[in-house]
Design a protein around this nucleic acid. Structure first.
Length: 343
DNA sequence: TCTGTCACG
DNA sequence: ACGTACGTGACAGAC
């Protein structure tokens, strides 16, 4: 495809080397105006992905025994301590496009039951606020503010009401970056801006949230000393990369250490909630059951008659899994199918 | 078995 | 100068 687009048609190649030109989503988007074939390829990519990964294989995996689709949970694969799922991977069912959502709609509750989706709101940034103690972050959450808008207002020194969409999006990408272990290069790639500009955003952010800067620095220093990063509950992730002689590998180690505190603690918290919910459902003799976990979301199949009780049970056990400051927050939706439950 | 791509958090 | 945002799994195609 690269040969056709870039050599034969002479479209603007741009990014990447290594084994040749890239033809990924971002590249295609950037050359959409240059030739009418590009949009057709983009469309074909979306259709073939959905067809080959979901529509084709999933029906074949429905159990003959009970007519349901069962995944396999791996508890010891993902380094931060998250679960992962295989055959099929039910943690990557589409949601981001209209067409993808139609596939999600095919996941339905049994007759007499509804699907209840409960997801933690900004759990990793709340963990950051808690472990860093950064007052501005804690207060923004305590006041129930939109965290990306609050971040943009603070960093740019503007009234939240006057912020543009782009300004909020920059703050959102910076917040993602903080969770991933930020780098100027990564932020610049993501926002498609010069690295110097990205570096300036990072410096402005850290100046406005000094306790976050302290948290990052102390996390790295501790990890260098101990050889492992530690979640809020004391679970450890070894980070040998931090001792590497290669500077790039050491930088990776720094990002892994910082990311683990948030991603790993979030994984711990939702597991605590799952255990608590399961125990209470059993103790109360409910027919409702947990059917899926997707990192910050729990999906339950709930009899109609149990809905209001189970909804409050789930909210209480997820929010109460651990007393964070700011507190954990949970959004809950109910529907006949999984897509509906998330609206 | 590896690479590129793309689905999710 | 280099080359990176964190974590997964599935698929097609090349080898």
């Amino acid at each position: 495809m690269a040969c056709i687009l870039f050599d034969k048609l002479g479209l603007n190649a741009g990014r990447k080397g290594k084994t040749g030109y890239s033809t990924d989503t971002r590249v295609l988007r950037s050359i959409r105006e240059e030739h009418e074939i590009v949009e057709v390829i983009e469309e074909w990519r979306e259709y073939s992905k959905l067809l080959n990964t979901y529509l084709g294989p999933l029906p074949e995996l429905i159990s003959a025994a009970d007519g349901r689709l069962h995944t396999t949970f791996n508890q010891a694969v993902a380094s931060p301590g998250r679960l992962s799922t295989t055959n099929p991977n039910l943690q990557s069912i589409p949601i981001r496009t209209e067409l993808g959502r139609e596939i999600r709609s095919a996941f339905v509750a049994e007759p007499g039951f509804r699907l209840l989706s409960a997801d933690y709101s900004q759990v990793e940034l709340r963990i950051l606020a808690h472990v860093s103690g950064e007052p501005k972050l804690r207060e923004a959450f305590a006041r129930g503010e939109d965290i990306h808008t609050a971040t943009a207002a603070e960093v740019l020194g503007k009234d939240p009401a006057t912020l543009t969409k782009d300004e909020r999006n920059v703050a959102k990408m910076v917040n993602f970056g903080i969770i991933y272990g930020i780098s100027a290069f990564g932020l610049s790639e993501n926002l498609e801006i010069p690295r110097e500009e990205a570096q300036a955003y990072i410096e402005a952010y850290l100046a406005r949230f000094p306790l976050v800067q302290d948290f990052i620095q102390r996390t790295i220093e501790r990890c260098e000393r101990d050889g492992y990063a530690t979640s809020l509950f004391g679970r450890r992730r070894p980070v040998p990369e931090l001792k590497a002689s290669n500077r790039q590998t050491r930088s990776l180690g720094e990002r892994l250490a910082v990311n683990f505190v948030m991603q790993g603690t979030a994984a711990d918290i939702i597991k605590k909630a799952m255990v608590a919910i399961h125990r209470r459902l059993r103790a109360e003799g409910r027919a409702a059951r947990l059917v899926l976990q997707v990192h910050d979301e729990l999906l339950l199949e709930v009899p109609e008659v149990e809905l209001s009780a189970v909804k409050e049970l789930v909210r209480a056990e997820m929010c109460g899994a651990y007393p964070l400051d700011p507190p954990l927050a949970v959004d809950i939706g109910v529907g006949d199918d999984w897509n509906e439950a998330k609206n």
